[in-house]
Amino acid sequence: MTTTNPRAERIRLFAQPVVVLVGLAAVLGVIASGPLDDIEQRNINVSTILGLTWQHLLLSVAVTAIVVLVGVPLGVVLTRRWARPAAPFVLVLANIGQAAPAIGLLVLFFLVTGATGFWIAALPIALYALLPVLRNTIVGIQQVDPSLVEAGRGIGMSASAVLRRIELPLAVPLILAGLRTSLVLAVGTATLAFFVAGGGLGVLIDTGDKLGRYSVLVTGAVLAMALALLVDWLGALAERYLAPRGLR
C-alpha cells in the first residue's frame, strides 16, 4: 500500500522484491527439501503451484481490469459539471461498500447466484476493490488547478480535449496510486476465492489446514504474500515511471 513517506517508498522500491524473492526461495526450499508424504506431494509440486498461482494472477488481473474499466470512466463522469452533485452520494455508497467485508460480498454473491467459479469470485472482489480507483480518479481530477482547465478552454480547447489532454494526464499519479491499492486488495481478496470454488492460492492454505499439512498451508500463504508484495512493488514502479514526466 502507498505510504506518505517518500523515503519509506524508496526503501520498499529497492528492498521489497529482494526480500520477497529471497524469503520465498528460502521457505519453498526448506519445504521442498524435507520429506513429503503423499498428500503433501500431491499439493506441493511445480504444476499445482504454478497452476494455482496463475489462477490467482488471472483473477487479480480480471478484477483490476474491471476496476479500471468501471472506476475511471465512472470517476470521470462524476467530475463533469452536470453529474457533480451526485459525486458525494456515490462516494458515500462506495465507502459503505468497502466497509462491507469482502468475504461477505463473496459469499452473498455466490449464494444469490447459486453459481461458482472464476467470475463468481471476480465480480464481488471487483466491487470491493473499486473504491480506491474510483475515489482517486475523482480526487485526481478535482485537484487539477481550475486555472489550468480555464487556460485550456481559454486557448480554444474543447471540453473533451481539456479532459483528455489536461485533466486526465494530471490525474494519472493519483489514479495510479489508487490502482496500486486496488491491485493489492484484489490479490489479497483473491485468496478468498476458493470459498466459492474460484481457485487461487487460498486453495493451498485451506487444503493444508483441513488436512493438517502445515507445509501445504505455509506454501500457499507464503506464495500469496509474495505475490501481493510483488504486485504492490509493480504498482510502485508504475507510480514512479508511468506518471507524466513533467510531474515527476
Binding site: 500500500m1 502507498t2 505510504t3 513517506n5 523515503r7 519509506a8 517508498e9 524508496r10 526503501i11 520498499r12 528492498a15 521489497q16 493489492v184 490479490v187 489479497g188 481478496t189 483473491a190 485468496t191 478468498l192 492460492l201 487460498g202 492454505i205 493444508g208 489446514d209 502445515y214 498451508l217 505455509v218 500457499g220 500463504a221 507464503v222 500469496a224 504474500m225 501481493a228 508484495l229 504492490d232
Partner: peptide, 26 residues
Amino acid sequence: GSAVATALTSAVLTIPSFALLGLLIP
C-alpha cells in the same frame, strides 16, 4: 528510523489477510 518503520508496517498491510491468518495457525 521513521522510513524503516513506515516501510515495514506498510509492507505488512500489503500481505493478504487470509494468508497471514493461515500462516499463524501452525
